[in-house]
């Protein structure tokens, strides 16, 4: 089911890309602006029974056609190192996004249509002790069995920004399909489907030097068998962005603060293009970031954050501290 969905996804985005290019076959090459953005995430878990740390590396490529829309392709690889003998998890994510902007005279603003697809593969490497030598567990070698889970996510968004760029609103819907590999030896999670609805409102103030935004998350799971019976979660996320005047302290271009209240299970974050595929409840989050301009077209972004999680099955409450850095190069 997931593989079919992923194939359909790939087909949709291929068509989208071809269609975008075919819209203006005689356009000058400079109608397209291109960019790449490598990124790194380092996370340390505190008080977690299962996890020790996470290392993640990603690369995004963008192609924007004038002001009308664009495509974004990304790949991210993350490794979660388990504490003691708990399993390590390798996660690879392919991401493809298409965006089209309609300029409305009636609404005096821009209407954006966005469609994202994620193809996620999680490989859980379970360590067990072999007793092939026949001399007991302690004398046997370590055996690693890998369980492969496939997750397919589709996210659709309709957004509006007025021409004065002072008001913003969007509604989003994400459908996530979790397909867990079943094992005869280990307890496996049950396949699940997650639906997420989001509604966002934002506005500019202080002569557009500041931006405040709130996003509501409503997340429903098909069943709560993997999450101690919990099958829904709601949260609200606040973001505050501030743009500095040129030649500001440390030459900072903009700053960013994010706070999350409420609870999220398997959320899809459309701003950071992230899916949280681990079956732990996020119970709070705070992050602050700074952005520097490097030349006319490029930027460096640094974010420090703190997340709280809860593993509902084993009642394990823990936190995570992270540093995220990315460079976006455009031409």
């Amino acid at each position: 089911m997931v593989f079919i969905k992923q194939k359909v996804l790939k087909y949709i985005f291929l068509c989208l890309a071809i269609g975008q290019a075919a819209m203006n076959p005689v356009s000058a090459a400079n109608d397209w602006s291109l960019g790449i953005s490598p990124q790194v995430l380092l996370m340390q878990y505190d008080d977690s029974t299962l996890r020790d740390n996470l290392r993640s590396f990603g690369l995004f490529a963008t192609a924007d056609y004038l002001d009308k829309g664009g495509l974004k392709l990304g790949y991210n690889f993350a490794t979660v190192n388990g504490r003691a003998n708990n399993p390590d998890v390798d996660e690879s994510v392919w991401f493809l996004s298409g965006r089209y902007v309609h300029f409305s005279d009636t609404l005096t603003g821009k209407l954006g249509f966005r469609l994202d697809g994620y193809a996620v593969t999680d490989k859980t490497k379970i360590k067990s002790l072999s007793d092939e030598s026949g001399m007991g567990h302690n004398q046997g070698g370590s055996v690693i069995e890998t369980l492969t889970d496939d997750i397919g996510v589709i996210y659709a968004q309709l957004d509006y920004m007025n021409y004065a760029e002072q008001l913003y609103a969007d509604i989003g819907y994400a459908s996530s399909d979790y397909n867990y590999e079943q094992s005869a030896e280990f307890v496996s999670a049950q396949d699940n489907q997650v639906q997420q609805f989001t509604a966002t409102g934002g506005f500019a103030f202080n002569n557009r030097y500041d931006w405040l935004q709130a996003r509501l998350y409503f997340i429903n799971l098909e069943h709560g068998n993997n999450t101690d019976g919990v099958n829904q979660s709601n949260a609200v996320e606040f973001k505050w962005l501030h743009w500095f005047k040129p030649n500001a302290l440390l030459n900072i271009h903009s700053s960013f603060v994010k706070l999350l209240a409420g609870k999220r299970l398997f959320p899809v974050d459309p701003d950071s293009y992230t899916t949280y595929s681990i079956a732990d409840m996020q119970t709070g989050s705070a992050a602050a970031g700074l952005e520097w301009k490097i030349g006319a077209q490029s930027k460096f972004f640094l974010l420090i954050g703190y997340d709280k999680f809860e593993n509902l099955v084993i009642d394990d409450k823990y936190s995570a501290t992270y540093v995220f850095g990315s460079v976006s190069l455009n031409w």
């Binding site: 000058a28 400079n30 109608d31 004038l66 002001d67 009308k68 300029f103 821009k110 021409y163 760029e165």
Partner: peptide
């Protein structure tokens, strides 16, 4: 320009 399509207007 009225629709703030800066890149297209610049083009």
């Amino acid at each position: 320009l009225a629709q703030q399509r800066w890149k297209e207007a610049a083009k």
